[in-house]
Simulated scan of single mutants.
Amino acid sequence: MTDLPAAVFWDMDGTLVDTEPYWIAAEHAIVEEAGGVWSDEYAHELVGNDLMVSAQFIRDNSPVDLDPLEIIDRLLERVIVQVREHVPWRPGALELLEALAAESVPSALVTMSWRSLADAVVGALPEGTFAAVITGDEVEHGKPHPEPYLAAARALGVEARECVAIEDSPTGVRSAVGAGVPTLAVPHVVPVPVIAGAVQAPSLRGLTPRDLRTLFDGARRG
Rank of each mutant, 00 (worst) to 15 (best):
V8Y: 11
V164C: 11
D50E: 07
A118K: 02
T19R: 02
G14H: 03
R161Q: 12
S169W: 02
E147Q: 11
Q82P: 00
V121W: 08
T183V: 11
E159T: 11
D119G: 01
E167G: 12
V110F: 06
P170D: 12
A179K: 10
E138M: 05
I195K: 02
D3L: 07
M112S: 15
S54W: 00
D13R: 03
G178P: 08
V186T: 12
E138A: 14
V194R: 14
P106Y: 13
E147C: 04
G92P: 11
F9M: 08
V81E: 10
R78Y: 04
V79T: 10
T214A: 15
D168A: 09
V192W: 11
E32Q: 14
L125T: 09
S116G: 04
S39P: 04
P182T: 09
A26F: 01
P144L: 09
Y42I: 05
T214E: 15
Q200E: 13
I134Q: 07
L75Y: 05
D11C: 08
V121Y: 03
S107E: 06
F216N: 09
F216R: 14
P68G: 08
T214L: 15
F57S: 14
A165I: 02
E20K: 01
Q82C: 00
L215F: 15
L94T: 10
E27C: 03
A118L: 02
A132Y: 07
L66F: 05
I134E: 07
V186C: 06
L215W: 15
F216I: 03
R154Q: 07
E138K: 12
V17M: 01
T171M: 07
L16R: 00
Q200H: 13
T208E: 15
H28I: 04
P63W: 03
